[in-house]
Amino acid sequence: MLSLKRAKRAGDGDVPVAAGEAPAWGDADDGPVLSLSGIGRTYESGDVEVNALADVHLEVQRGEYVSIVGPSGSGKSTLLNILGLLDRPTSGSYLFEGREVATLDEAARTAVRGRRIGFVFQSFHLLSHRSVVENVSLSMLYTDVPARERAERARAALASVGLEHRADFTPTRLSGGERQRVAIARAIVAEPAVMLADEPTGNLDSRTSESILELFASLREQGLTLVMITHDSSVAARADRSVSIRDGRLTVEEAR
């Protein structure tokens, strides 16, 4: 299998890369951005083991727009946490841009997360006391981007989601849709390999949801890789491809 070979190759690359050395896997890599094989996640509560995820296989190609749909409790949040390297699978292999990340230590996973993944959350997670542009800049704070460049890029990202006129507001003065646009700007400003969206329209009314989904579509047109998690199948249908999850298993993988 291709992914196994890749896993082997990536294993060699697990040796920490010296600062300044270009990563062996960048935008030029034409393989899948994400590749899960046999991923399982087990929680222990007392003596009982709960299988939140079992034997999950999923590949997301560069530039693809994938939705993962399932009811609450289906394990989709667990899957998103694993995709976002916020959590560690208990079994299986996870190749991120061709590199095995399931076994990385905390600092290395944080580096991948901070540099290569953008997050959009259902509850926006904006810092209410900081200005919009500061909120967007936050995703470049830990990745060696000089302060001046951070502000410039943040304003450019805000422009691309149509919010440049709100740059100096605090999020408390924005509507829900505008807040989610700020969060999206924050997710894309660092030019991640993939943007993970967790119920991005869950807190929005249908009209605002529509505009957010249109924004997603236009970002996908610009070449952004997108993985969206939702419980709403009509929202999920907006993606190129929709994957259904139930009881911790991906049950349907349908191409569209």
């Binding site: 944080t110 997360r113 901070g114 936050l138 704070l141 830990y142 660092a190």
Partner: peptide, 10 residues
């Protein structure tokens, strides 16, 4: 949580 998500270490 957000800071950890955008790359902040412990």
């Amino acid at each position: 949580g957000l800071r950890r998500a955008v790359g902040a270490r412990r």
